[in-house]
Amino acid sequence: MVTLRDETFPIRSSDDIVKVRQITREWALMQAFSLVDQTKIVTAASELARNTLEHGRGGEVRVQALQAGARRGVRLTFVDQGPGIPDLDKALRDGFTTGNGMGLGLSGSRRLVNDFDIHSEVDKGTTVMIARWK
């Protein structure tokens, strides 16, 4: 696997959520994603950026453009030093919510991507990694 581009962006305000969406769109376009693939990764990015802001008290996202053989992908890693998630299994179920969303943030974005990985430690923070391949 080759990393074509690798940058990190802050998530500190709700304007940053819009920025994360724009950046993700730009990188997905760069990787020649189809419109549906672009929309899926951008939507997942929007959900997770909002999680990082609202539940993680802000953090950052690392964006990577990847290539593995003929496949091209975009990987996003959201990192926060927030309160963490005590029960991950529960948080990954549809309808689970602590904030004011619909409880589809984590479980929903998982369905929009090909790779999904989450690590969380109470009082330490949460890291969510997603990737979509064309």
């Binding site: 549906v36 939507t43 369905r111």
Partner: peptide, 13 residues
């Protein structure tokens, strides 16, 4: 838009 509709369904909404 179609792409938005497909994504929303996948999201579970």
């Amino acid at each position: 838009r179609p792409a938005v509709a497909i994504t929303l369904v996948e999201l579970g909404l």
